[in-house]
Write a protein that binds this DNA or RNA. Structure first.
Lengths: 197, 197
DNA sequence: TTCTTCAACTAACAGTTGTTAGTTTTGCTT
DNA sequence: AAGCAAAACTAACAACTGTTAGTTGAAGAA
């Protein structure tokens, strides 16, 4: 149906501009009138396309979450060592972020403005995702790839801290490619865990 | 003067509660009426103690900034290798954060809501601080402590990403002490830079 | 007791917020 | 040319925003 395509396309346009605005000013400080102005329309006109301000945030957060999960599921299927899974997981995470740095920044910084029950659901997805990375580290310790005396919680939080700030300082005009960036990051972060043989 | 002492103490009480609120809800989503309620007074009464909402944020951000700078200045004085300076700088940074996790979280997440010219001033302090850490890394490369092919910008951004998220997940009830946490973090982050001899 | 100072109060302001209801314009399809 | 749906519009709402002006009660100093 042409109608669906058209309306979806306009709706997505609204959501993309909203993502830019949310990243720039933060969700709370960004008003619907700001958003409307960016699109050259009146604030009330936005509601032809979206149900509420929060629906935009929900869409942004959960769409990104789905992409991260899909990327991780691919890695888990592979028949490789735990440390290699960790490496591929990191690269995958970076690639997903690089595909949409704006949405990634919103995903990471603004999700807390979701109201219940969306917030609870989001946090559950998130902790699950993190725990699966933590599992890679624990498996790596068990197999002797990684040091025995690692604080796994500390390690995994450090890992995600590094990854999640990336969209705030990485610029798409940079000469470094996402794949390359992911590899460098993975090397840097994993070397701290590895045994020194 | 007794008056000054009393008013300062009450003012600081207001600022501390504000820090909790700003961390919890974000600066923009936190209203002066929320803050007043937390203190058990009316919103208008806050203005006996502070000039404006933004003055609170300014105080929080610049007080933290001063502590970080003081800590770094101490490290730079020492007569040790670049990699050791980096290590001590990281530990110092973590210790300053651990002294006030709430203010640290605000410092890191909410500073962007400062208006000009405070924002500009803040960002200049920040870039200066980061560049001095970057210098440690470059010195470490020059002296052969660190690998030659390191992307120093990437390395320093990764470092601060890890450090800056800490106040969001570190809980004061944790068994791990700040000094110990700082040491572990420093080891983990620096091992990725070191030569494998 | 009277004076002073602090820290709270009430009342109100002008502006902004997300959102709604109902209407008009636009551009394609028949 | 007529009909239709998408996408915009105007006008308005109730609630909330940071902040001000002026006032009052309590506590300690003179």
């Amino acid at each position: 149906m042409a109608e669906t395509v058209t309306s979806l396309s306009r709706k997505e346009q609204v959501i993309r501009k909203a993502a830019e605005l949310f990243k720039e000013k933060g969700y709370s400080a960004a008003s619907m009138r700001d958003l409307a102005q960016k699109l050259g329309i009146e604030a009330a006109s936005l509601y032809s396309h979206i149900k509420s301000k929060e629906e935009i945030l929900r869409t942004l957060c959960f769409d990104m979450a789905a992409e991260f999960r899909a990327s991780l599921a691919e890695v888990e299927k592979k028949q490789v060592s735990a440390s290699e899974k960790l490496r591929l997981g990191i690269i995958g995470h970076v690639k997903v972020m690089a595909k949409d740095l704006t949405a990634s920044a919103v995903f990471m910084n603004e999700h807390r403005h979701l109201s219940q029950p969306s917030l609870r659901e989001f946090l559950l997805l998130r902790i699950n995702y993190i725990n699966r990375f933590k599992q890679f580290i624990e498996d790596g310790i068990a197999s002797g790839d990684f040091k025995k005396n690692i604080d796994t919680k500390l390690a995994v939080m450090t890992l995600f801290s590094s990854l999640n700030w990336m969209p705030l300082w990485f610029s798409p005009e940079s000469t470094i490619e996402p794949e390359n960036l992911g590899t460098q990051l993975a090397d840097m972060l994993i070397n701290g865990l590895k045994q020194n043989p």
